[in-house]
């Protein structure tokens, strides 16, 4: 069989909705695209813990603190599911992490914006996690099996993230004048970056067409963005707040909301590393990695000691 034959068998599987599993033949470009996308996604989960972690010690109540800790812990778990899915494609965890720390790998630009007030935590849950969910729900049907399975798991947990964020904003929106202003201010600052999360216009997106053919993606950037806008316009009414876009208007013909143009200069600046917090985020990641060195060494030493003088691990007997 020639490589063309393999290619055809592969595409036939995709067209017939048969998932691709780790040991199946796949074109190198499919493998690379998935490695790139899944690892970016994993990095986003991990870096995404930073802006929120910033507020754990300053959450306004014990309840909010417990919720925020649970959410940040979830993000760590999501990172792990995704790193594991990525590894099935033949890249080691170490390589993936090194690519993040060296700046070679990208993560979602949204996390390069600062969290200035408590309301930002609510806005992140509602808008940022809301935008992420649009993408992730689509990805539960992606063609690569391990990625799709990780997404199913993530989506189950993600809904809590969005709801707690919206509820947190709801409390502020019914509070004092200052709280209302804080809520509106956070929405103003997070709205546009949230729209940017869906990536460039379809016409500008270099990866989109092939990814659709391979069913890695099933909706285009612009479709997902439109769905998100339509959803938020209704939700913001419940908050009695405004989305910061004068051009938002129902379009009867399209049966969608029209909205203003994203500031693409800002988008590309942040992607290229010139956002408000790019340096800070990567420094924080590297610092965490370096300062965890002794923990990794200690765990390795402990395991080695056990290997030399084995003990039955707790739970091993019941396993049989």
């Amino acid at each position: 069989m020639s490589v063309q034959d393999f290619d055809k068998i592969f595409q036939d599987k995709i067209d017939n909705e048969i998932k691709i599993e780790p040991k199946d033949w796949m074109p190198d470009a499919y493998r690379k695209t998935n490695i790139r996308q899944i690892s970016q996604h994993a990095h986003s989960e991990i870096v995404g813990m930073l802006p929120e972690g910033n507020w754990i010690s300053r959450a306004p109540s014990l309840k909010r603190k417990a919720i925020l800790i649970a959410k940040v812990q979830d993000e760590a778990g999501h990172g792990l599911y995704l790193y594991s899915a990525c590894e099935t494609l033949g890249i080691t965890r170490e390589e993936t992490i090194n690519d993040l720390h060296s700046g070679k790998a990208k993560y979602s630009s949204i996390f390069n914006y600062p969290t200035l007030t408590w309301a930002d935590i609510g806005a992140i849950g509602w808008l940022v996690d809301g935008a992420a969910i649009m993408n992730q729900v689509m990805l539960t049907r992606t063609s690569y099996g391990p990625y799709a399975r990780a997404m199913v798991r993530i989506c189950k947990e993600e809904s809590f993230h969005q709801r707690q964020g919206f509820e947190s904003l709801l409390v502020l929106s019914r509070g004092t004048k200052e709280q209302k202003e804080m809520c509106q201010d956070a929405i103003n600052r997070w709205w546009w970056p949230a729209l940017m999360m869906f990536g460039p216009h379809d016409s500008e997106s270099t990866n989109s067409e092939q990814s659709m053919k391979w069913k890695i993606k099933r909706k285009t950037n612009d479709e997902l963005r439109q769905n998100f806008v339509d959803m938020c316009v209704d939700q913001v009414k419940v908050l009695e707040m405004k989305l910061p876009d004068e051009k938002l208007k129902w379009n009867e013909e399209r049966q969608h909301y029209d909205f203003g143009e994203i500031n693409w200069d800002e988008f590309w600046q942040v992607v290229k590393g010139n956002g408000p917090c790019n340096k800070q985020r990567l420094d924080a990641r590297r610092k965490a990695w370096e300062e965890g060195e002794w923990v990794r060494e200690a765990a390795a030493a402990h395991a080695e000691k056990r290997r030399v003088k084995p003990q039955t691990p707790k739970g091993a007997l019941e396993a049989a």
Binding site: P22, K23, T88, G90, T92, R296, A300, A301, A303
Partner: peptide
């Protein structure tokens, strides 16, 4: 055309990282 990878999901006997884990001090 078939490249083999030994990580994750449905691994083979060489799955996991290597056969003498932690030999490099972790």
């Amino acid at each position: 055309f078939i490249r083999k990878f030994y990580y994750g999901d449905i691994p083979e006997e060489k799955g996991g990282n290597n056969n003498s884990p932690l030999g490099d001090g972790g």
